[in-house]
């Protein structure tokens, strides 16, 4: 398997560390309640098909990536820096919050 690091280019699987679905980007507030936390830490959709997931380019640039990969075929559709995704999410949430 080879993954496209946005900073380093396409690299071998050996350089990466995996950490599951990218739900881990959306950490609930401390007081979000047991359901939200159970969701975040333990419950997963886990269906075959495209999955946004976390990969760490551990033996490369050190970037955490959000990779879109099909868990049934292993076809990789793309990768973004997790930091960019998180910042965009945060911004979106802030804007939304400001409106309401």
């Amino acid at each position: 398997m080879r993954l496209p690091c946005p900073l380093c280019g396409e690299r071998d699987l050996r350089e990466f560390y995996y950490q599951g679905a990218a739900v881990s980007l959306t950490r609930p507030d401390p007081d979000a309640g047991a359901d939200a936390w159970a969701d975040y830490v333990h419950l997963r959709e886990n269906l075959p098909g495209d999955l946004e997931e976390m990969w760490h380019h551990a033996q490369g640039c050190g970037a955490w990536l959000v990779v879109t990969r099909n868990t049934a075929t292993h076809v990789v559709k793309g990768a973004k820096l997790a930091m960019d995704t998180k910042r965009a999410d945060t911004k979106r949430a802030d804007t939304k919050g400001a409106r309401t």
Binding site: S24, L25, H56, A63, W64, L81, A82, T90
Partner: peptide
């Protein structure tokens, strides 16, 4: 080390 990378990039890029 990986945990710090995760926290700073994925949870608290601020």
């Amino acid at each position: 080390m990986r945990h710090l990378e995760f926290v700073t990039q994925c949870l608290r890029p601020d």
